[in-house]
Nucleic acid binder design. Structure first.
Lengths: 304, 304
DNA sequence: CGTGCCAGGTGCCAT
DNA sequence: ATGGCACTTGGCACG
């Protein structure tokens, strides 16, 4: 049995179905007239109306109206669903602790209640994320700067992990912050924190013990062979070569807003325009070159 | 007719139901075995499996697995839903432009398809947001600082709108940034940008023409009567009274992380611990005092 | 579990 | 439309 469905069930019927579905670990949808109360990190009340309520076996709960991508109310995974009949209404309650939160849906009428057994994979294969951008940068560092040499990814600093850290042609340390989309002032602030942290690090003599003691296992860039060129850029740093303090800050993103650009200039940082996905993939995802291993879209009859 | 539901429909049947539901402006749920393709700002592929697909009349589309609060794939409101039978599968496609994005769901089997007419309100009454925190601060400015006098909310600066702007007992300008929850380094960066903008503003002589020309209609704090006290604080600013440049920065939030606190101290700013909801409302939402106009939870029988 | 950060973030409201 | 920001942000990875 994969799907059960009851129309206009009595509250007792609905309760029975719900508890059986909880037991089975089914996905549940309930459509009916209800009010919704939430209390926890915040608190909310929603007056009576028809809504679609989705209860997942992992504890997630969603209350959807006919509008919006975001549910009006919800409960994250890890909650526990309970059902009961109280004061003539079917009460579905989803509770979690830490933080303590309760979502209560009170149905005056259940128009339809369905339960379904879910099978099959849920692994999404996604392209175009920041990780893809990082890959692009690591594969072709010249896109960032002619002489750029990546040395480490997720390089730890006192201000947090630097996306890509390396040196330029002149041996100056370069802090690269990656963003998959157009950036605003916040990204500049982020870059600024990282650059300042690295500068401070160099100032106090290379080792502030800020860098967590990862033994080059995780974040190191694939060594291309040439190591004997100035191993950690400790010699050239500290002198005010160009601007700032010898440490360059580079924001790699498709584009940047005016305010962010102003802030960036103020800090003496740079912006490099780069897309997370290489050229040839436009908004519709058509790949001009690189005929990938896509075996679903073959017959291109795209009407309707 | 509010709800229609078909079990294991043929693709033709399902297609018929779908198009009728589109026509009626109904909310649609489809449960079945499908693959999902998305392309637009990014691109993704999801292999075959059972999923719950929700199609809303406003154009929103959701694809849910049995896990997570967030749909594996989706389309925001404003999209257009289309259905067709292609290559022996039921294809549901949701398309939007700007940005150009397409979500395609291909059903090999539809286990259940339901359509529902939605009526009733969707206005959520939410408490505990940043706006509530602002209200608290405006009603009791002393919570921020003994002599604090709010002057303006959403005060425009070259760096963006300042949550609350005012003066302290010594007549110094105060920039207040509000956060409804525990803050990290980003919030300090935000406050820093605002304070710097205000300082620059004062430095260049009160009017940099940064402040957008809102004629005191929107952001002004309710005038309490006393206006003849130094109308815009132009006299005392510019002298390095305490630290920084005579402009104070205050981060109002329930709590703050260590890193953020360090940054805050570095900038010479302050943290004021304040909750968006007044004392007496704990995590479970029980209000100790202030018996509000809540008329739903009366009989407190809270078992199961 | 808290800290920090990315996300196809979404949503709201401003210019 | 773009911009800046809040959000019960959610989700993940790491210390």
């Amino acid at each position: 049995m994969t799907v059960t469905s009851v129309h206009d069930p009595s509250h007792r019927e609905a309760l029975w179905e719900l508890e059986a579905a909880f037991e089975r670990g089914d996905l549940i949808t309930a459509f009916g007239r209800c009010t919704v109360s939430y209390t926890g990190r915040a608190a909310s009340e929603l007056g009576s109306g028809d809504r679609l309520v989705v209860l997942k076996p992992d504890g997630a709960a969603l209350v959807h109206t006919d509008e919006g991508r975001t549910p009006v109310n919800w409960q994250p995974p890890g909650s526990e669903h309970h059902a009961a009949v109280r004061e003539g209404r079917l009460r579905v309650r989803s509770v979690r602790s830490s933080p303590a939160e309760t979502l209560t849906v009170r149905f005056s009428d259940v128009h339809q209640l369905s339960t379904m057994t879910v099978t099959g994979g849920r692994d999404l294969d996604l392209h175009g994320s920041e990780e893809d951008l990082r890959t692009r940068v690591l594969e072709r560092p010249a896109l960032v700067d002619p002489g750029f040499e990546p040395r480490e990814t997720e390089r730890p600093t006192s201000a947090g992990p630097v996306d890509v850290f390396g040196v330029d042609g002149a041996g100056r340390p370069v802090v690269v912050e990656l963003k998959r989309r157009r950036v605003g002032p916040d990204a500049v602030g982020q870059l600024d924190r990282y650059v300042e942290a690295v500068r401070e690090e160099y100032r106090t003599g290379g080792f502030d013990d800020d860098r967590a003691d990862t033994d080059g296992d995780d974040g190191d860039v694939h060594s291309d062979g040439d190591d004997g060129e100035g191993d950690d850029g400790d010699d050239d740093a500290g002198s005010d070569d160009d601007d700032g303090d010898g440490v360059r800050g580079v924001l790699v993103a498709p584009s940047i807003t005016d305010r962010a650009a102003a802030l960036l200039a103020d800090r003496g940082f740079e912006h490099v325009a780069l897309d997370p996905r290489p050229e040839g993939t436009d908004g519709d995802g058509r790949v001009s070159d690189d005929a990938g291993a896509d075996d679903d879209r073959r017959g291109r009859n795209d009407e309707e």
